[in-house]
Amino acid sequence: MTAELKRMCKSLRLAHVADIYDRIPFEDPVQYAEALLTMELQLREEAKADRLIKKAKFIQEKSLSSFQWSEKVHFPPQMDATELGTLQFIERKENLIFTGSTGTGKTHLATGIGHEACRKGCEVRFYRVSDLAEVLEKAWAEGRWGQFRNRFKKVDLIILDEMGYVPFNKEGAELLFQLISDWYEQTSLIITSNLEFSQWNRVFSDSRLTAALVDRVIHHAHILNFTGDSFRVTHALSRQK
Score class of each variant (00 low, 15 high):
residue 133 A to L: 14
residue 128 R to A: 13
residue 233 V to R: 04
residue 73 V to R: 06
residue 7 R to N: 09
residue 235 H to W: 13
residue 222 H to C: 02
residue 193 S to R: 13
residue 103 G to A: 04
residue 145 W to C: 13
residue 1 M to P: 04
residue 172 G to M: 14
residue 31 Q to T: 05
residue 46 E to L: 03
residue 14 L to P: 14
residue 121 G to M: 07
residue 153 K to H: 12
residue 33 A to D: 06
residue 61 E to D: 05
residue 125 R to Q: 02
residue 107 T to H: 02
residue 114 G to D: 06
residue 132 L to M: 06
residue 115 H to A: 09
residue 152 F to T: 07
residue 181 S to L: 10
residue 206 D to F: 02
residue 51 R to L: 10
residue 9 C to L: 12
residue 31 Q to H: 01
residue 223 I to C: 12
residue 75 F to E: 00
residue 147 Q to M: 07
residue 204 F to V: 04
residue 78 Q to M: 02
residue 14 L to T: 15
residue 101 S to R: 12
residue 10 K to R: 08
residue 151 R to G: 06
residue 181 S to V: 11
residue 183 W to A: 14
residue 72 K to M: 05
residue 91 E to G: 08
residue 146 G to H: 13
residue 9 C to R: 10
residue 86 T to E: 13
residue 177 F to V: 12
residue 101 S to L: 12
residue 56 A to K: 07
residue 176 L to G: 11
residue 14 L to I: 15
residue 145 W to S: 15
residue 51 R to T: 08
residue 159 I to P: 11
residue 74 H to R: 05
residue 166 V to I: 13
residue 139 A to R: 14
residue 41 L to K: 11
residue 214 V to K: 08
residue 38 T to W: 03
residue 209 L to Q: 05
residue 91 E to P: 01
residue 191 I to P: 15
residue 47 A to H: 07
residue 93 K to A: 02
residue 150 N to D: 09
residue 190 I to Y: 15
residue 103 G to R: 07
residue 30 V to G: 04
residue 12 L to K: 08
residue 161 D to T: 05
residue 137 E to A: 12
residue 160 L to K: 08
residue 128 R to T: 12
residue 71 E to M: 00
residue 142 E to A: 03
residue 97 I to L: 15
residue 234 T to S: 10
residue 77 P to M: 07
residue 210 T to S: 07
residue 231 F to L: 09
residue 135 V to Y: 15
residue 2 T to W: 03
residue 118 C to S: 02
residue 126 F to G: 09
residue 91 E to R: 07
residue 210 T to M: 04
residue 49 A to I: 09
residue 141 A to L: 14
residue 70 S to K: 00
residue 76 P to E: 03
residue 90 I to Q: 12
residue 49 A to F: 05
residue 132 L to R: 05
residue 32 Y to L: 03
residue 185 E to D: 13
residue 216 R to C: 08
residue 92 R to F: 14
residue 115 H to T: 10
residue 3 A to V: 09
residue 205 S to C: 10
residue 226 F to T: 08
residue 118 C to L: 00
residue 82 T to F: 11
residue 106 K to Y: 01
residue 217 V to R: 03
residue 166 V to K: 11
residue 21 Y to T: 10
residue 66 S to N: 06
residue 181 S to Q: 15
residue 147 Q to F: 00
residue 171 E to I: 14
residue 186 Q to T: 11
residue 75 F to G: 00
residue 32 Y to K: 08
residue 209 L to K: 02
residue 193 S to V: 09
residue 226 F to Y: 09
residue 22 D to F: 00
residue 173 A to I: 03
residue 135 V to Q: 15
residue 123 E to Q: 14
residue 110 A to Q: 00
residue 13 R to N: 14
residue 67 F to G: 08
residue 224 L to C: 07
residue 23 R to Q: 12
residue 214 V to Y: 10
residue 178 Q to N: 15
residue 147 Q to D: 00
residue 115 H to L: 06
residue 164 G to W: 13
residue 220 H to M: 10
residue 9 C to E: 13
residue 207 S to W: 01
residue 129 V to D: 09
residue 71 E to G: 01
residue 217 V to S: 01
residue 112 G to V: 03
residue 107 T to Q: 02
residue 178 Q to C: 13
residue 114 G to P: 04
residue 77 P to A: 13
residue 155 V to C: 06
residue 99 T to P: 04
residue 84 L to Y: 01
residue 196 E to L: 03
residue 171 E to V: 11
residue 115 H to E: 04
residue 97 I to G: 02
